[in-house]
């Protein structure tokens, strides 16, 4: 082989450049890792599983809720609503301080919040209780109508009796 020295040197330089990111990472310096504020208490799944699979869990939830109309699932013997806004963000209150920190570090741009409402911007305006109250008001109105009809028929009866 001609120019053996140069060729071998070239191969070594190429391999070093090619593997440089891995070599740098092997040094164990993780100072660039983001720090997130994690709420106290237990998450639905262990931390490592959530870290690795939260996107798959959310996708499964999405398909179950939207396409199969199944809203609840059982995790550790508890009924959990499969909802990003109602379940996850109940503990992880801020998108800016939780989701975005890691997503920015990993350079991923999920489009969840293009449609789902960012809890940093808007707090829920109508709780389930308020909805129920609205419902009760409507029912009361219907009852009143019924009463009115009954009263009217009574009045008509009274007039006829006269």
């Amino acid at each position: 082989m001609y120019n053996t020295g140069k060729v071998v040197l070239g191969i070594i330089v190429f391999v070093l450049i090619f593997s440089s990111p891995f070599l740098i990472n092997m040094s164990g310096d993780t100072s660039g890792m983001p720090e997130m504020t994690v709420p106290e208490g237990e998450c639905l799944y262990p931390k490592d599983e959530m870290r690795a699979n939260h996107m798959d869990i959310l996708n499964t939830w999405r398909d179950k809720v939207v396409r199969e109309d199944i809203r609840y699932t059982e995790i550790n013997g508890e009924q959990v609503e499969m909802s990003l806004s109602h379940t996850c963000m109940k503990c992880h209150e801020s998108r800016k301080e939780f989701c975005n920190v890691c997503h920015a570090y990993m350079e991923v741009n999920p489009y969840c919040w293009d449609c789902h409402v960012d809890p940093d911007d808007h707090k829920p305006t109508m709780t389930i209780d308020e909805e129920a109250a609205m419902e009760a008001a409507a029912k009361e109105c219907a009852l009143k109508e019924e009463e009115k009809a009954i009263q009217e028929s009574l009045e008509i009866n009274a007039e006829e009796e006269k």
Binding site: C115, V117, T125, E131
Partner: peptide, 30 residues
Amino acid sequence: KNITANFPTRSKGVVEKCTFCDERIVKGLE
């Protein structure tokens, strides 16, 4: 005008329509 937080909005390039309030009928509401 006023974003209702417990329902999503839509994004650009998406079609939308009435869904008979699927999120309400699942709770037994009209």
